[in-house]
Design a protein around this nucleic acid. Structure first.
Lengths: 203, 203
DNA sequence: ACACGATTTAACCAAATAGTTAAAGCAATT
DNA sequence: AATTGCTTTAACTATTTGGTTAAATCGTGT
């Protein structure tokens, strides 16, 4: 190869992600993606034969970030407390670095739920992990919530603030992005304390 | 008028909501909306001059449900505990009746954040209410979390399970809709207990 | 029977857009 | 200098789709 192929390819993927995110798969225009990537439409089709293929690539690549994270967190936590901390830290740190992930996945979840679920099912990710961690705790130190409710709780607490960013920023903080950023900075610690307060019984 | 105008109009709105929800504003086709409503495209344009106007109507109507609820809950709660209970009960009961609301609003939030925020700002909805309820509690009985974090927590816990339905159903419950429904039934009570456990200090 | 609004039918238009093609240019490798 | 592969330009096609139009039909209250 003569010029660096990855560079243009990555530029296209980043541009496509931007545009798909802003406009959704249907709203996105190939021309707009080309513009965003600083290339022309012909070259775009030279790299990715169709809009569908391009979207597929972007989705798979984006989703992989989440999968890798979850797998890692699930396999490395050995107590309930460390699970909660790792899970929340892992999730929020990924979302702080790549906030677009939340919207992107949720958008695809409503457009094509089947596909998202299939991607999750491809992972070998142990959904009974939390239940087993809970059952190995002393029953007098934790409240007996349904483990699945707790998993959903933690996911909700981590993901929602990114999806609802315009509302939190625009309404809660009157449009002040700095206040929103502070809010997000404090979010990780807040969730950990909130969940632990809810789950563990204080003496 | 000769025939009942509301009937067809409502049929169109319901059909449009369905299709807009499934496909998003851009993915939706006027023809598909007409089919779903059991009428033809001409009549669709006879009632709503353009796709934009139709979407606008559907959005405003859908969003009104949420607004009315929040306003009601905010004005009627006089203690922190009753606020939490009313808020969660109000939110989950609306979403159980009309689960499409969550996706619909979130979808529009990423397509046109400005518009959603404007709609919220039009309400006279007191965002300091929770803070004032917290400050009137005995400091020894509640944990000192940031009130805005708590509001976001509650919203997240209520809304997320509906948005993530395909994941919860498809992955957590291996596609069993009945188990998902039971999960949702228990959700209201779970959230209330979870939040109260986190916020109130037990003796 | 008449009028009038609701509804259908069917053909049509204009714009947008995914995707194609082909020829030419460019930059590094050989 | 020739080759090779990335990149541009620009014109083009086919299809989809929002929206229009006009005439016919249907149903009901007067």
């Amino acid at each position: 190869m003569v010029k660096k192929i990855e560079n243009t390819e990555e530029k296209i993927i980043a541009a496509a992600r931007e545009v798909f995110l802003r406009k959704g798969m249907d709203g996105a225009r190939m021309q707009e993606i080309a513009d965003e990537a600083g290339i022309n439409k012909s070259l775009l089709h030279y790299y990715f034969r169709s809009k569908d293929k391009l979207f597929d690539r972007v989705f798979t690549e984006t989703f992989k970030n989440v999968i890798d994270l979850i797998t890692e967190v699930f396999s490395s936590s050995i107590t309930l407390e460390s699970f909660i901390e790792n899970f929340v830290r892992g999730y929020t740190s990924v979302l702080i670095k790549k906030p677009y992930i939340a919207n992107f996945v949720l958008h695809e979840l409503s457009r094509n739920p089947q596909r998202v679920v299939e991607h999750i099912n491809l992972t070998n990710f142990d959904k009974l992990k939390l239940a087993s961690l809970i059952s190995s705790e002393d029953k007098n130190t934790i409240r007996q919530f349904n483990p699945i409710q707790i998993i959903v709780d933690i996911l909700a607490l981590c993901i929602f603030p990114f999806v609802a960013k315009p509302i939190i920023k625009g309404f809660m903080f009157d449009g002040d992005i700095e206040e929103y950023n502070i809010f997000i900075d404090q979010r990780t610690q807040h969730i950990i304390e909130f969940v632990k307060s809810a789950v563990f019984i204080q003496k």
